[in-house]
Simulated scan of single mutants.
Amino acid sequence: MNISVVIPLLNEDESLNELHDWIVKVMQANQFSYEIIFIDDGSTDNSWQVIEQLSKKNTSVKGLRFQQNYGKSQALNAGFKIAKGKVVITMDADLQDSPDEIPELYKQITENDLDLVSGWKKKRYDSKIRKNLPSKLFNAAARKTSGLKLHDFNCGLKAYKKEVIKSIDVYGEMHRYIPVLAKNEGFQKIDEKVVQHQARKYGTTKFGMDRFINGFLDLITIWFLSKFAKRPMHLFGFLGSFMFFIGFCFALYLGIDKLFFNPVGRLLTDRPQFYASIVAMIIGTQLFLAGFLGELILRSKRNDARYKISMEVGQNNN
């Protein structure tokens, strides 16, 4: 199979038929073998009913339905697990991503032997204050922390070599930083392509301030994981040893001062330095233990499911 198109969605019943027909038209024009995987992320409209109808009409359509809204990252992760195409393309369901970009994205992956091609919506039709400004802040921070010189980390239109999506674990709001996750797994051949962005035709945007905040928190997480995920003791052990050393030095100073210079003076417990040394040594010990526990957890890592699928269609289709 040439291409798997993975489409996460939430309450997009108005756009699904049009999007499906557009993708099929592109695939047939280019003679691609394909599958379309819709992941319904807990929609409350008729999105799942539309997916079921599309699956009956087109055996290349598959669908997963979450029991509730788990988020775009979980939806992508579920789609990646069942994708069979040599190249996997992700896109949003709101018709703002153009399926006409698929042939060029496929060509970049296969002909240039790239691991990942990220779309760049150079000209956007979103609200400048609500989405454009936050996206620019995200992208600037992501470039700085990851070292990847991509203009648009948050673009939903991306193409991946199959090996990439089978190697990464997407969770939280990490869908924004999939190129960084891929880089951390050793996939270095990453490029970008300017893609057409279209104004939303149906429904309303799902972007909110909570996603803005969560995205930045996840950026901090991914920076930490990039630096210390494989060796948490390198960070926590260093900080713990440093804090313990400071506390020990305070305690040593107080002990020498009490024994040799001020034996009949005030009690050690009356001096604030005594409590500072105790707190520093306790914090140092806790940080060191945190690093040690991190190493143990890393070695006994489990892959726990973060979502529950209530229905699926098309899984027996070839």
Rank of each mutant, 00 (worst) to 15 (best):
E111N: 15
F80V: 13
K57Q: 10
I278Y: 09
K161F: 06
L150I: 09
S127K: 04
A182H: 05
G186F: 10
D100I: 12
K56T: 06
K128Q: 07
I178P: 01
N30I: 08
L9N: 05
L289G: 14
S226N: 14
D304E: 13
E14F: 06
L148M: 07
E12T: 12
E101Q: 15
G63D: 03
D270E: 15
K56N: 15
M1S: 07
K121Q: 15
A305P: 06
E52C: 11
A251I: 07
H175K: 11
I309M: 11
V61D: 00
L268P: 04
K131S: 05
K136T: 11
L105T: 03
G156W: 00
N11F: 02
L181G: 10
A159I: 00
L219M: 11
I178Q: 04
L105H: 01
D40L: 05
F261L: 03
A305R: 07
W48R: 03
F224H: 15
K166Y: 07
N262Y: 01
S277I: 07
E104H: 09
I178C: 06
D304P: 00
P232T: 02
N112T: 12
A93Y: 13
T269M: 06
H175R: 07
A229P: 01
E185N: 09
V180E: 09
A142L: 14
Q286M: 13
G42E: 07
Y177K: 04
A199Q: 12
Y253Q: 04
D191Y: 03
E163H: 06
L148R: 00
I213N: 08
T145E: 13
T285P: 01
D94A: 03
G247F: 04
R266N: 10
S241V: 10
D41A: 06
L254N: 01
A29P: 02
Q198I: 10
